[in-house]
């Protein structure tokens, strides 16, 4: 089932000035309900503009954004409800924290929804669990935390609204490997528990290959391609031409293939390649030299 549909969406920045710039040009795309979609593209390809269109922070100049088959701009008064349904985590969200305690900050969204105190407590506890924040942290000031912890608090703040669609713009940018996998683990956990649709904007092809089922590739304000990880990463040369890349390990597999060792296609994570390599080392009769 289609959760979000974009029909001929265009968006223009700085209209009527010399700085005018077409950010999005006739975007058509569908996001399946319950999927994890990776949104990739070169810097300035329109990814961040696109995600802001999805929760109504920006209004398309042309075309429609449909959520569950209904135009999100159909009823302007319902815009806040839409924001609770489509949760957006911005890039470097740790800069939005403001409350005295972590707990209160996570509760900001649910409070705006007008929920009861009891329900808010539940939501905060659940969101904190998804993001791996333990009980002791909740009473601390968000400004005392480390960068990675702050990031998780900010993401929990959006998860606490239990949006049906969770959009994250570069959720792991600038974090260490442990921080990255914690955050992506939390996102997967959230999806598993709530069945939400997830969209992740990322520059890391490794993360996309590991966590996403679908990939949407943007280039110069247009949808360049849409498909499964296999379909997209098979087009390595074309991806390079638009300033993108394939996962490092996939590059390694291609190089091996060029050297005459064919491990097979569609290997994009270290784990998969590891399993494919094992036969070559066991017994030494795998044909490898």
């Amino acid at each position: 089932m289609t959760k979000i549909e974009l029909k001929g969406v265009s968006y223009l920045y700085g209209g009527k000035t010399p700085f005018e710039k077409k950010a999005l040009n006739n975007i058509n795309a569908c996001i399946e309900a319950g999927s994890i979609t990776g949104l990739i593209g070169h810097t300035g390809s329109g990814k961040s503009t696109l995600v802001q269109l999805l929760n109504g922070l920006l209004r398309p100049m042309e075309g429609q954004v449909l959520l569950d088959g209904r135009d999100i701009w159909e009823k302007r008064a319902r815009m806040r409800d839409l924001r609770f349904k489509v949760g957006l985590v911005f890039q470097y969200p740790e800069y939005q924290l403001f409350e005295e305690t972590v707990e209160k900050d996570i509760a900001f969204g649910p409070k705006n929804m007008g929920l009861s105190d009891e329900e808010i407590r539940h939501r905060v506890a659940d969101a904190a669990k998804f993001c791996g924040l333990d009980q002791r942290l909740l009473k601390k000031s968000p400004f005392e935390l480390s960068g990675g912890q702050k990031r998780r608090v900010a993401i929990a703040g959006v998860m606490a609204m239990t949006p049906e669609v969770l959009i994250l713009d570069e959720p792991a940018a600038g974090l260490d490997p442990q921080g990255r996998s914690d955050i992506f683990g939390g996102i997967c956990e959230y999806r598993r528990k709530t069945g939400a649709t997830v969209i992740i904007v990322s520059h890391s092809m490794e993360d996309i290959a590991r966590y996403c089922d679908r990939v949407l590739v943007m280039s110069k304000g247009q949808v360049w391609a849409e498909g499964s990880c296999d379909e997209i990463f098979n087009r390595a040369d074309e991806l390079e031409a638009i300033g993108l890349d394939i996962p490092q390990i996939a590059r390694f597999v291609r190089m091996l293939k060029a050297e005459g060792v064919d491990l097979g296609d569609n290997l994009y994570t270290v784990g998969e390649v590891y399993r494919a390599l094992i036969p070559y080392f066991k017994g030494g009769d795998g044909g490898a030299s």
Binding site: F90, Y95, Q96, N112, G157
Partner: peptide, 16 residues
């Protein structure tokens, strides 16, 4: 620019 960004982030959390 920063103000714009923070406003959008809080709007995304339902601030009005």
């Amino acid at each position: 620019e920063e103000t714009d960004k923070i406003m959008n982030a809080q709007k995304a959390r339902g601030a009005d």
